[in-house]
């Protein structure tokens, strides 16, 4: 695990806490799959604090009422398969709902 990934851990816990406590109290809102919080967890664990945060901010900006939404996964690491592909083929992977 890189320094960036370790540094991202507290943020990942924060998002997880949101998913466990706050999110269930509210109706489903996200226009994307995976949802913004799941995207944040994957982005932070995959790319570390800096790039993970940047990817998350950009995704949150995309998740506005004027966007069409749809399927939008965190970019795959070079040499790794695309998440959309894994999901479509029912292969277990790190992305959560």
């Amino acid at each position: 695990m890189s320094v960036g990934q370790v540094a991202a851990k507290p943020l990942v816990w924060l998002v997880r806490a949101y998913q466990l406590v706050l999110s269930p109290m509210r109706p489903a809102t996200c226009r994307y799959y995976p949802s913004c919080s799941a995207y944040a967890v994957t982005a932070l664990t995959r790319y570390g604090l800096l790039r993970g945060t940047w990817l998350t901010i950009r995704r949150l900006g995309r998740c506005n009422p004027w966007s069409p939404g749809g399927v939008d996964h965190v970019p795959a690491l070079p040499g790794h398969p695309d998440d959309a592909d894994l999901v479509a083929r029912h292969i277990p992977h790190e992305t959560t709902t």
């Binding site: 809102t29 996200c30 226009r31 506005n64 069409p68 479509a88």
Partner: peptide, 24 residues
């Protein structure tokens, strides 16, 4: 997961989305 992904892809393809988005 696969079902959600297919449903979301359909929303995008049809240009409609029942969710309000995260920004508000």
């Amino acid at each position: 997961q696969a079902m959600t992904q297919e449903t979301m892809a359909l929303y995008r393809q049809e240009g409609t989305n029942p969710f309000s988005s995260c920004l508000p």
